[in-house]
Amino acid sequence: MDKGVIYFPSKPSILAAGVVVGPLEKRSVFVQNFDLVYDDELADQKTNEQGHQIMIEEAAQIALQKKKLTKDSLDFFIGGDLVNQMTPTNFAAATIASPFIGMYSACATSTSSVIIASLLTELGGSQYALAGAASHHNAIERQFRYPVDYGGQKPATAQWTVTAAGYALIGKHQEGEPCIEAATIGKVADFQQSDPFHMGAAMAPAAFSTIQQHLKGRGQTVQDYDVIMTGDLGKVGLPILKEMLRQAGLTTKQLETVRDGGAEYYGDNPLFLAGASGAGCSASVFFSEILAELKSGRMKRVLLVATGALLSPLSVQQNQSIPTVAHAIEVTMK
């Protein structure tokens, strides 16, 4: 077995999911699968960070409601966001009041928290666990880049941090629900990329190495999957990943399996430049669109690869490169 590849014999299921998004995400191509779209990114709170927290709480609530559960029946709550010290998730965890671990894998948090939840379920320690991630455009932008109203020119490679929270309810295996068969915890890749407005190029190598690692560890090929979906490489990062895979021997036909949530998120809208990014991007795509596809039976086996750029504003200003990571989960449906 290859390093980092985990097989779950009990096949924990994704019982339900809740996805809440901000007002701009109305324009997403995936909008019909989102559970709740806010009219205001503050969600009637005073600050963006509080709005962020409410969004997480509501996503968790929706996921529980779908299975007619209350937060008391929850065994674990695992998640994270991109704000310093993940305070929105921490405050939301205080409201949800179940055992909690905060996860930080930048935008790969959506899958890394699902992996931990699946492991806890596999161990028999958890009946119901909520796992997911969230991001809030205004709160993230001011922390990683400039104030929201600052008129800086962004290059065509820049991505738009989405306002979205996606949480999945992970439980013991249940027939008729998508289940998590395997996962891969990725290695940190650092290809000396340093442009914070070009995350796609920084993250593509991480996605590449995790996909290779997973396929090798599981003894599979790309044909075994209906789709291999990366989190938020965007419109520039995705072609780079495809080129890397092509050089590794994939055919054009096989490459059609590879898609990216961030690149598709806002369609062709040029206002969003290279597409969507943020922890909430992969979470809201995986836990809405992809789950719906699995449940409808249109897809049988998918590999969800969330990619994260592990930078901080400080490391960028100190001229350090951007290390990146990607975590994958293999979800199947009978």
């Binding site: 901000g22 701009l24 455009h137 205004n138 932008e141 109203d149 206002l271 969003f272």
Partner: peptide, 9 residues
């Protein structure tokens, strides 16, 4: 007078 908004157009 104002608050920051993430509007795009």
């Amino acid at each position: 007078l104002f608050r920051s908004k993430g509007n795009i157009d």
